[in-house]
Design a protein around this nucleic acid. Structure first.
Length: 256
DNA sequence: CGTGTTGTTCAGTT
DNA sequence: TAACTGAACAACAC
């Protein structure tokens, strides 16, 4: 699931369930903690109170005193309010709070994980070379970035080092709304194209973030990701191909 | 038993 | 060097 809008949903879950709460214990599957042991994570968090979570791209950044817990959700991860919820086979980490309540990191596949950072340097090392957050990017910034980028539009928008947050679904949705074919070189975009791309990106991300996922509404391209479906705007049969390594849908009519 | 999957990373190639 | 490709990771559904 997790693209930027999904992680916005996780951010709200964390804020509701964990922010302001003091950690009592940390248990779970040791392999989901990527850069320390379960015990190390427990020692760093125990007795600490979680602050307000932040997000950059698909990363969720959760302060606990001087430390930070960094969540990445891979393809199947999510945060769950564990209060009163029955144990689940895919609960990989359980953080219990003083006075009751718990937060769980649940993931079917263990492609994401949990990292501990003691300071800003450690955090930067873990996050790697991320581009600006897609939701915080201004049209002027995008315009300045586009000219120097070689290669196709989809590959660029999917590159977390270029812009952080877009995934396969949101990328297809944004390109469709902006009327840009996924293989079209990004550097070929006119100023108007860039303005349209920026508008489409914010629109898609804001609408999706509000519900915490990319809505597969019938009026969205994302609602038609099965072979043989038609464009919800013009009725043209959608194209489907592997672009930038991922299954891509686009409308040859709306995205020349 | 194949294929495919909303994520990243790494090795190898263009 | 920048960017691309394919494999690997992991756990399912079909």
């Amino acid at each position: 699931m997790p693209e930027l809008p999904d992680v916005e949903g996780e951010r709200r879950t964390f804020a509701r369930v964990a922010s302001g709460r003091t950690v009592a214990s940390v248990t779970g599957d040791a392999t989901i903690v990527r850069n320390t042991s379960l015990q190390g994570l427990g020692r760093a968090l125990k007795g600490r109170r979680f602050g307000k979570p932040d997000r950059h791209g698909k990363w969720l950044l959760c302060p606990a005193g001087p430390n930070q817990v960094l969540f990445h959700f891979g393809m199947t991860g999510s945060l769950v309010d564990g209060a009163g919820a029955p144990p689940h086979h895919h609960d990989r980490l359980v953080v219990r709070f003083e006075g009751g309540g718990e937060l769980r990191y649940r993931a079917m596949r263990k492609l994401g994980g949990v990292w501990l950072a003691h300071d800003g340097r450690a955090r930067a090392r873990i996050l790697g070379d991320l581009g600006p957050d897609a939701m915080a990017l201004s049209e002027e910034e995008l315009d300045a970035m586009v000219g120097a980028r070689r290669g196709g539009s989809k590959a660029a928008l999917m590159d977390q080092g270029f812009i952080a947050g877009l995934g396969n679904l949101s990328c297809d949705e944004v390109l469709w709304r902006a009327g840009i074919s996924p293989r079209r070189p990004l550097s070929s975009l006119s100023r108007d194209d860039v303005a349209g791309l920026h508008r489409a990106m914010l629109r898609v991300l804001r609408d999706s973030a509000r519900v915490g996922r990319i809505p597969g509404r019938p009026s969205w391209l994302t609602g038609h990701r099965s072979p043989g479906e038609s464009c919800p705007a013009c009725g043209t049969r959608l194209e489907r191909a592997r672009v930038a390594g991922r299954t891509t849908y686009w409308c040859p009519g709306c995205q020349p």
